[in-house]
Amino acid sequence: MSKLSKNQKDLKEALLSLNRVMAEKILKKLKKQNSTLFLVENVFIPVIEDIGIGWENGDHALSQVYWSSLYFEDWVDQEINLGFAQKSNHPKMAIAVLEDYHGLGKKIVLSIMRASGFDLIDFGIGISVDDLVQKTIDEQIEILLISTLMLPSVLRIADVTGKLKEKGHEVKMIVGGAPFRFDRELWKNTDADLMVGNAGDVVGVINGLIEKYFR
């Protein structure tokens, strides 16, 4: 787990205990000396990553990850209303829950990504392989995130990658969801480029991908 500064630790504590008043107070104080962008990139994102790792290690609960990501998104929305301009120049991205109706992971990832300045298209839940392939091509998606909870859905991801290749559409694919945590080798069967073990890792993984393939 990364070492957090005192400010980061205080914010983390406020988020984990669902104490919005405390979180507001901490952020208000920090804003006097820092820009919103600085707070997003150097305070919020490391804290969210840390909470995600804590969940993966069994130290925190999913409800805490959910509320933290939602608070992060709400806070950034407030800042946007106050004039904060997010970055908009990044590869075109989308997220979907493949053949599966469990949408919580997607919702958390969307909140974290949007709050971190990434604009994602939401392809929704329960999408079939063919629909996902078609939408990815139609929307000219360059980075595709696929969330799954059920093992049979995981096993269909390779069909998505295969069909996209067949159709000559270049896309970087990131997968995540419970089955990948229970079998760390499983994601390799999907032909995806990367796997994220928890939603908190997604911003770092996307930034790494952009740095490597899109700069």
């Binding site: 984990l16 969940w55 069994g58 925190h60 609960a61 999913l62 409800s63 805490q64």
Partner: peptide, 9 residues
């Protein structure tokens, strides 16, 4: 489970 809900909740 504590995977989903913290112990105090």
């Amino acid at each position: 489970s504590v995977t989903v809900t913290p112990k105090n909740e």
